[in-house]
Structures are given as C-alpha cells and as structure tokens.
Nucleic acid binder design. Structure first.
Lengths: 341, 341
DNA sequence: GACGAAATGACAACCGGTTGCCAAATCCTT
DNA sequence: AAGGATTTGGCAACCGGTTGTCATTTCGTC
C-alpha cells in the first residue's frame, strides 16, 4: 500500500496532492486535466496515472468558482407531478448527461414568483436554463433571457430561443375529427390564463371553427389537474355541447371520471379529446383520444439548443426556434355525435 | 438613480461591493449576513439595506467552497418516469425547500453503476443524499453512507438510516383479502431481483400463505414497467392461478391491459392487486385494488432525518429508522374467485 | 475616572481550482 | 553550433465567500 499513502489522508484528493505526487505544479495538473494540449504528453500521462491512482474527482464548486462555468443546467417545470413533464425531464436529463452536464430540476409550483426567484438563484449556479411552460410575462422572460442563456419550451417570445409543440395545428385536426363524427357544438376547455399554449390553441380553434361553420365555445379556465376535471365535466354538460377539446389529459381524465359518476356515457353522450398523451391516457376508461407529440425529443432538442448557445461552434448555425409536430391519436373517448350513428 | 450607481456595473454584486458601499470590511458583511449576532445591530442594518439596494444574492459556489456546506441535497431515484417516485420527489422537494436546501434530482436508470458514480459525484456537491430503492449491495451502501450523510428509502441496511414502507404487512392484508374472496391459488409477481422490497414481500407472503394453508407461488422477475405487464399476465394465466399480488402498479396496469386484450375478465376470471397506488391506479380499467402508502410523507420524513443528521440538535433524538404504514385500497380489480359467487 | 470584560470589526489565510504571464527548456533551422 | 521559434511548466493572482486571530472600541462597574 506504500504507493497509495498519499491517498491515506481522509480528505478527498485535490490537484495539489497530484502535483505533489508527480513533482509538478498544481497549475500543470490543472492544465493536464483540462487543456491536455498545453502540456507535454509524458507529463500528462504521469499526471493522469496519479489522478487515477488517487481516485481524484475534481471539485465542481471550485471549478465553477474560478472558471465561471458550473457544468449545470437548470430545468424549470411548473409541476413535477404532472406526467406531461416526465418525458420532457427524461429528455433533458438524457441529453445533458450525454454532454457531461448536471441537471438541476426545479418545480416552480405554477407560480410566477417562484419561477422568477428560481431563475435568479440559478443564474449563479447554472450555465443556462430550460424553462417549460413559463408563467412569466413576455417582458420578464425576455429580461431573464438577457441575463443568462435560456431556451423555453412551449412558450413563444420573440428573441428567446424556443422549442414549440405544435398543438394549435393538432387542435384543428381534433376539430376536423369531431366534425367528421357529426359534432357541431364543441367546447374548448381552457387551461390557466397565463398559459400561452392554451391561448394559442383557442385562437387557432376559434378561427378553424369559423372557417368550418361550426360552433365552438371556450369554457374555463381550469387548473391543469385531474381534480379540475369534475368542474370541467359539469360545465361541459351544462353548456349542452356534445364534444370537448380539453387543454390537457389531466383535466380530460378527470372529466372522464366525473362523467362516469354522473352516468353520462363517453363517447355515446359526449366525446372527449385530450392533449399530451400522458402516462395513463392509454389505459383510462375509456382510453383517451388525444393530441400526441414527441415530448422526450422536445426535451432533447431544447438542451441541444441551449448547449449550442453555451459553446457556439464556428460555422454552426444556431437555430432559435424548433417546432415539434403533433398528431391526433384516436382511442375510445371520441365517437359519433348523439343521434348520428 | 444616483443611489444605485454601484449596481450599474454589469457583474452581479458581491459582498465586497456591499463592504465598499458601507465602508466596512468584507468579512464584516459576511458575518452580518450569516452570523447576525456577531455584528452590531446598526452596522448590520446598514449592511442589510445596502444588500437589498444592490439586490445582492450570495454566490452559492463560493459559499460552498469556503464553508464546505453546499446547501444542496441529492435525491437518487432509479427511474424518474416511474409515477411512484413523483410523490416521493414532491415530498423531498417540499421539505428541502422549507429548510432552505436545493434538491439535486438524479435518475440512476436502475443501474448500480450509475448510482455509484452519482454518489461519488454528489459527495462533493451535496451535503447529503436520499437514496430511493437502491440497487447497490448492502456493503456498497454502508461504505457510501460512511462517506456522506445518507438516508435510504425502501431499503433496510443496518447502520444506514432508512425510511421503510411497510409493504410486507400490506402484502399479508392483500392475501387475506383474496382469501376472503375465496381464492386459494395465488401468484406473487416479483420485481427486480436486486429490489429488497420485492424479496421481503415474497418472504412475508410465503410465510403468511403457509400459516393460512393456501398456495402462493412466485413468478418473475419482471421489470417495473407497464410493458412487463404483458409477460406477467401471460405467465399468470399459464400458471393457472386465480389471483395475483403484483410487485407494483406499473406491472399490474400492464397486466390489466394484456388480460383485456386476451379476453380474460378482471376480476371475474382473475383478480389483481397492485402496490403503490400510483397516479393512474384509480382510473385504469378496472380501477386497481392496490396497497397504498403515504409516499409524499415518506419523502418528507427522509429529508427530515437527513437534515437532523446534518445539524444535530442538542437533546434531539435522531431516529434512524421510520416505518410508513400501508393499507389495502380495494377497487374494482379484485373479486370473488371463479365459481365462488 | 480607571479598569476589566464583552462586543465589534479588520486582516489575512484558506477552500480548490483556473488562467495570464513569464522564464526555462526544447526543438528546428541555417 | 548559434539563434530564433515553439513548447512546457511554474508563479501568483483571482473567483467570492468563510473564519480564526487579534487589536480596538464600547460598556458597565467600582
């Protein structure tokens, strides 16, 4: 064990220990490890061997402090327990890990204040952030983006790189699907007022409805939780529509449960289209027709865009906007309008 | 704006800026902010005012480097996308935030190697870790716990503080429930071999079955994913049992789908009991009877235990083991054994 | 008004790296 | 072999705080 005596001290090894072991300066060790070209290959190999022997692990805090780069990326989501974000998180995690970055996951609790303070916090401890479904105003977001590299997901603010999920177009697909089933009176069950996605979908939907000459009304807003489904279901029934296009699957699943309780059959009496194709959409009762998109991929793309910002490659074109396609997946919750079969 | 000119520099303010503004030494500012008693109340107020005016935010990296405390806690889960962990994560997040800590969430991908390397990494960048459903050996876990404060969840290793979820006892409840419905031939659908929970449940179940004079056999192992449900369902059908106690809800839900595809009715032909009461267990078809426990609370307790380790309170008793109760929630997936109604 | 104790604040070292600068060593050219 | 170009590696300052030490001030007390 004589050769490992330097490691015998309980404190984890530092570059100074390596330097002492190799008889070089600490700065040389630093260079050998981070700028291999700056150092003689033989010295480097000696240093690498020593590092391996001591089981050296660089102190990320110290590295961050002196270099200004933290090697971490913050990922802000409004609600960790919303299954929609699972795949997104999984995507960002995969891509970040592949690039040697650490993911700092923050739940902003659907609150603009928590979101803002998290950003302020992260400004020091992360190299950049991915912000999903921001609750912040355009101005606040733009200001924040000026202070640190940022990519948004599902939020379109000019000047801020974004990954957008093309649910508006899917909304039109959903409407056409319902029309083809004979529905002429449809409700859009809106999400939070601060959700840009919800607003956009409604705008698109209203326009498409006008073109097609059918009636579409907006109900809500509803919080994006299954519990809101009960309120939404009651509102839908009361409004007399025969089909609903719902802000997200969480609410839609909640509606399914409530409608069942009330003895209203889906899809015989009422058709429901959700959005996101979350975990559970395929096994609820009835299985939910929904607008699906490659969420995990969206997470990966967001990270790629962010990393491209962090270390611009000469000649590489930095995309500032990426739109993910969405398609309608029809399952059991949509059927012919009452009296149409 | 004359008063804010010190903030006009683009670089975020440091304690040195505050010190300059107040005409005191940087160390005094540091003390005023972290050891308020060590400094005159009037000086402190001046400093606090200056800090507020400059919109000062302490640099967590620098703080971590010099103090040795990072203010972060790592949370390791085998699979972020497993809904079981949502509530756990939510619980740890809540409790950590309340205590002013940051949560570093890591997905260990069901791999002992990833888990070990994450721990090594976290050793420098976190003050402690919460490890859920570790895939590591007892020895490795014990060794890791010696190097940094640690609390495990759902993993019992002597010497390592743990939060345990009492699913074994719930397993017995499930068995009694099935027996009361007339089932005499039951299968236990096992989880991963490296999962201690799975092993314990089987041990408890086998013993309980012997006492009660009924037949219980183990099938599997099955990966804890819905996709494994198909294999599990086929295995169960082939074995001829009339009821299954399943390692977790993910597999159970997958079984439900497969059985439906194969035209086997649940619960008429086959009863299914899951475990965890995850998101979706209440709205799958049929709704799943399952063993439920306060997972979010488990997360909160785990963090409390960890924080107690980090800053021991004089006179406070540090608990090293906490068992969360579990109860059976009966829904639609369990019914009388065939020919028993 | 003098004296000792407690409170206060400054200095400087330190945490573990990174990096600009410079001198020494090495290499190549003529 | 001399001279210049290029490597190579060491020194020291620095990132932004924390903390031990110590001199000074303030206070209460006799």
């Amino acid at each position: 064990m004589a050769t490992t005596q330097a490691a015998a001290v309980d404190r984890p090894p530092t570059i100074h220990d390596i330097a002492a072991l190799c008889g070089v300066a600490a700065s040389t060790v630093s260079r050998a490890l981070s700028t291999p070209d700056r150092v003689n290959i033989r010295t480097r190999q000696r240093i690498e061997a020593a590092a391996a022997q001591l089981n050296y692990i660089p102190n990320s805090q110290a590295k961050a402090l002196s270099s200004g780069r933290t090697g971490a990326v913050g990922v802000l989501v409004p609600d960790i327990t919303n299954p929609f974000y699972f795949d997104l998180i999984r995507g960002t995690q995969l891509q970040l890990k592949a690039a040697g970055y650490t993911q700092l996951l923050v739940d902003t609790e659907e609150s603009d204040e928590v979101e803002a303070s998290a950003m302020e916090q992260l400004r020091k401890s992360a190299d950049g952030i991915v912000v999903a479904a921001s609750r912040l105003s355009d101005e606040a977001l733009l200001a924040a983006a000026a202070k640190m590299p940022m990519v948004t997901v599902n939020r379109d603010v000019p000047g801020v790189p974004a990954v957008l999920i093309d649910t508006p177009s899917a909304t039109t697909q959903a409407l056409d699907h319902l029309i083809s089933l004979g529905h002429t009176d449809v409700a859009y069950m809106a999400g939070p007022l601060t959700s840009q996605s919800s607003t956009r979908r409604w705008t698109t939907l209203a326009e498409a409805a006008k073109e097609r000459g059918v009636e579409v009304r907006a109900l809500g807003p509803f919080a994006p939780k299954t519990q809101s489904g009960a309120v939404a279901a009651d509102a839908a029934v009361h409004s007399g529509v025969t089909a609903c296009i719902v802000f997200n699957d969480l609410i839609a699943i909640g509606m399914l449960q409530r409608l069942r309780e009330r003895g209203i059959r889906v899809p015989e009496d009422m058709s429901i289209v959700g959005c996101d194709d979350i975990f559970g959409a395929d096994f609820c009762n009835p299985p939910l027709s929904t607008m699906a998109s490659p969420i995990e991929q969206a997470g990966r793309v967001a990270v790629s865009m962010l990393l491209a910002q962090l270390s611009p490659v000469a000649g590489g074109v930095t995309r500032s906007r990426s739109v993910m396609p969405t398609h309608l997946t029809v399952r059991g919750s949509t059927g012919p309008a009452p009296g149409m079969r």
